[in-house]
Amino acid sequence: HNLTITQGKLFFHYNPKLCLSEIHKMEEVSGTKGRQERNDIALKTNGDQASCENELLKFSYIRTSFDKILLRWEPYWPPDFRDLLGFMLFYKEAPYQNVTEFDGQDACGSNSWTVVDIDPPLRSNDPKSQNHPGWLMRGLKPWTQYAIFVKTLVTFSDERRTYGAKSDIIYVQTDATNPSVPLDPISVSNSSSQIILKWKPPSDPNGNITHYLVFWERQAEDSELFELDYCLKGLKLPSRTWSPPFESEDSQKHNQSEYEDSAGECCSCPKTDSQILKELEESSFRKTFEDYLHNVVFVPRKTSSGTGAEDPRPSRKRRSLGDVGNVTVAVPTVAAFPNTSSTSVPTSPEEHRPFEKVVNKESLVISGLRHFTGYRIELQACNQDTPEERCSVAAYVSARTMPEAKADDIVGPVTHEIFENNVVHLMWQEPKEPNGLIVLYEVSYRRYGDEELHLCVSRKHFALERGCRLRGLSPGNYSVRIRATSLAGNGSWTEPTYFYVTDYLDVPSNIA
């Protein structure tokens, strides 16, 4: 807008934040220059609390790290170098490059900038070799853009010569660093050979998330399962459950009422301010606690030095998902009996873990797994792929695949051998790939016309006998059925096997 004052003059007093240069501009645009008398524009009460600059400061050096910015700028000295009290560095987070010096300023003089007072450097006698002032900004957020400017702080001049310097606002972004852990990993099994893994992005990506790394490792069953005799009275049979499938998407929606109208769909109840505040506090606490764990609990591995020492970490090797089922080394339970199943799973520490690289999504279907087997899954978020990966501390989750139908069934015939004193040795093959492992066998036998009897055969007993022995049988026709019990439950009964026990007292003698 054009402003013209045809008559009258300007009068400025007691404006401590208004620089004289701005008042002189007002004289020019209003056409009143030359009308004012000496005392109409006070030299001592206008701009006496402001830094009124008329020179431009330029930054000469900028260096960044993930949490620091090192700045240096060209030296500046007023005509009387004693008038320079120091520099004021202003900075704040700036997602967009549209910041002005006066953003967030209120009537009390406060604003949204963080201000650092910096002492002037030592003055050199040689004007050509003056030290460049600077400042190291610490405690910054990774991968965050900051708006920065600097200006001088000078003393009051009796001659009211307006001098000083100020830089333009520059924008500097800190470097990326390792992201925080992925949030809320959930693993479920939808079949006997697959596990579905879902997660949420890290709360602090500290860069642009480029991919996720998912490692999985087959877990050995508890050692007590191999040692305890679950045929003993009072000892509860062990059981394991597989990871249940995901709930429906509708039930997972946030901010939804727990109660549904019987007449149909209901609208979600909005969260109160107290609920939102509580969630923010919980989120802040979780982030602080995660940072504490990362800094205190997890110790970084030592990389190899120039002395030739090897990095103890196993090298990563990509495998196809079809090879995942046989990740671990199978060892027989008892070496003397080769027909026992290889369900003991000690994992070799030198073995390469299978892994998958996930790009542009937060889910993965891990296939080719062994049925009813526990897996430990390790999830890392990465925001750099080359020249070397920059990934987060791992988040861990466990899951067990679903049982395989008929995996616990005894394959092959049940054979028998009759000894003296009416002892019958029953023999059968253990299931080759049971659900988890076989903890015991149930032997059901009966003599024709009598009630059915049951015998429990422990895992250890089966390994020693290759089956079991029935003792003290009365003469007669017998039928026997056997079924295995694994961590997933009972298998199917075998087809009945028949044998006849004679009275050993009636056996004919070869003595003449």
Rank of each mutant, 00 (worst) to 15 (best):
Y212V: 11
F355I: 10
F355A: 12
P338A: 08
D385L: 09
V397P: 05
L232Y: 10
S474N: 11
S239H: 07
A381W: 02
P431M: 02
L280H: 15
S243N: 13
R353P: 11
A484S: 12
F419R: 15
P332Q: 12
L487F: 14
L455P: 01
C266S: 11
S203W: 05
N422T: 07
S239P: 11
W216Y: 08
K287Y: 12
P431N: 03
V329P: 06
M427S: 11
L225I: 10
H416T: 09
R319E: 13
P270I: 12
V480R: 01
V297H: 08
K271A: 13
N295A: 10
Q275H: 10
C267H: 15
F419W: 15
D409R: 09
S486T: 12
T340M: 14
R483F: 01
R390P: 08
E404D: 11
E417M: 06
N435S: 03
E433I: 15
P508S: 04
Q384S: 13
C231V: 03
K460C: 12
K361M: 07
D222K: 12
K236A: 14
A407Q: 15
P434A: 05
V393P: 02
P300E: 10
G449W: 02
P403Y: 10
K460G: 05
E404K: 10
S223Y: 12
T497G: 08
G374Q: 13
T373M: 07
N435I: 00
R469K: 03
E249S: 11
M402V: 13
L293Q: 04
N422V: 04
Q256F: 12
P346S: 13
R469N: 13
E452Q: 08
Q252G: 14
K361W: 06
R400E: 08
T288R: 07
H461N: 09
N490M: 05
S223C: 14
P387A: 07
W242R: 07
S274R: 11
A336N: 07
H461K: 09
F215T: 07
D229I: 10
E221K: 14
M427I: 11
V507T: 12
C231H: 03
K406F: 10
Q429K: 08
Y292C: 02
S203R: 08
D408V: 01
T415F: 08
V359L: 09
L232A: 10
K460E: 04
S458W: 03
L228Y: 15
P354S: 08
T502M: 15
P314L: 07
D261A: 08
N339P: 11
E265M: 05
S239N: 05
V324D: 04
N208A: 08
C456M: 03
P244D: 14
M427T: 11
D385I: 13
C456K: 02
Y478C: 00
Y292W: 05
A399Q: 11
V334L: 10
S248R: 09
P338R: 10
L277A: 11
A263K: 03
G491L: 01
A394Q: 10
T303K: 09
I377H: 02
R313K: 14
A263P: 11
R301W: 12
E452C: 11
M427L: 07
S315N: 10
E281Q: 13
A407L: 11
T241W: 04
E290R: 13
E282L: 12
V296I: 05
N435K: 00
A407T: 12
V334K: 15
E433T: 14
W242K: 07
T333A: 15
R390E: 02
P496S: 08
M427Q: 02
Y445Q: 03
S486N: 02
E260H: 15
T415W: 03
I377N: 01
R483H: 03
V358R: 05
L487Q: 06
Q252I: 10
Q256S: 06
E388P: 10
H352F: 14
P270F: 13
F226P: 10
P431G: 06
P338F: 11
E247P: 12
V457E: 02
N477R: 07
P496M: 03
E224Q: 12
E404Q: 14
S257L: 12
A484M: 08
P245E: 11
K460I: 11
L505P: 12
Y292E: 06
G325L: 15
Y259D: 08
R319F: 09
S284D: 15
S268L: 11
S363I: 10
F372M: 06
L369Y: 00
E224M: 14
P434C: 04
K271H: 07
I276W: 12
N422Y: 08
T288G: 10
H211K: 06
Y441M: 01
E258S: 11
K302S: 11
S262Y: 08
